[in-house]
Amino acid sequence: MHCDVYKFPKHDDMYVYIARPDYPDDTDEIKDWLSVLPKDFRASLGVSKFVIHLDLETTPKLARVDKEEVLSKLKSQGYFVQMPPQDVMRRQAELRALEAQNNIYD
């Protein structure tokens, strides 16, 4: 199974894997690969940035997620969302709260 990985500047350390089951035969026309995402979710992500194309059959393992879980989600829904580690999410929430607190009197 081939897939493309994207990141989004508004969401540090979050990556979205998009299935490319017909690769390389799916490159004849320009496609919106992110159209498999639910519309509301996609709108909340902002502008995407392509990171890498992977052949998961030849990739031995992935850094932060279970390869079998990624494959399962790609096959069942066409995408997989890799969330940031909990410590990163906690720190981002703390920074947003501090920023909101500092801006309360602006």
Rank of each mutant, 00 (worst) to 15 (best):
M1L: 11
M1Q: 11
H2W: 13
C3S: 07
D4L: 11
V5E: 03
Y6I: 09
K7V: 01
P9H: 13
P9G: 12
P9D: 13
K10R: 15
K10D: 08
H11F: 15
H11D: 05
D12R: 15
D13N: 13
D13F: 14
D13S: 11
Y15C: 05
Y15E: 07
Y15W: 09
Y17G: 02
I18Y: 02
I18W: 00
A19N: 06
A19S: 12
P24M: 01
P24S: 03
D25K: 13
D25W: 04
T27A: 05
E29P: 00
I30G: 00
K31L: 11
K31A: 13
K31Y: 07
D32N: 14
D32V: 02
W33Y: 15
W33I: 02
L34Q: 09
V36H: 05
V36E: 01
L37A: 03
L37Y: 08
K39P: 13
K39S: 05
F41P: 06
F41H: 07
F41R: 02
R42E: 04
R42V: 05
A43H: 09
A43K: 12
A43V: 05
A43M: 03
S44N: 13
S44D: 14
G46F: 10
V47G: 05
V47D: 10
S48H: 15
S48V: 04
K49Y: 08
V51M: 13
V51H: 10
I52F: 09
H53F: 01
H53Q: 10
H53K: 08
L54H: 09
L54G: 01
D55C: 09
D55A: 06
E57N: 15
T58F: 12
T58W: 12
T59W: 03
P60F: 01
K61A: 09
L62S: 06
L62H: 00
A63D: 12
R64M: 07
R64L: 10
V65D: 15
V65R: 12
D66L: 09
D66Y: 07
K67W: 03
K67N: 09
V70F: 09
L71G: 00
L71A: 03
S72G: 04
S72F: 12
S72L: 06
K73P: 00
K73L: 06
K73A: 15
K75D: 09
K75R: 15
K75E: 14
S76K: 10
Y79H: 06
Y79T: 03
Y79M: 03
F80Q: 02
Q82D: 14
Q82V: 08
M83S: 02
P84C: 02
P84W: 05
P85L: 11
P85Y: 06
Q86R: 12
D87T: 03
V88R: 04
M89A: 10
M89L: 14
R90V: 04
Q92M: 11
Q92K: 08
E94G: 14
L95I: 14
L95A: 15
L95C: 06
R96L: 06
A97Y: 02
L98C: 06
L98H: 02
L98I: 07
E99H: 11
E99L: 04
A100K: 10
A100F: 01
Q101R: 13
N102Y: 02
N102A: 11
N103E: 05
N103H: 04
N103K: 09
I104S: 14
Y105D: 08
D106N: 14
D106P: 02
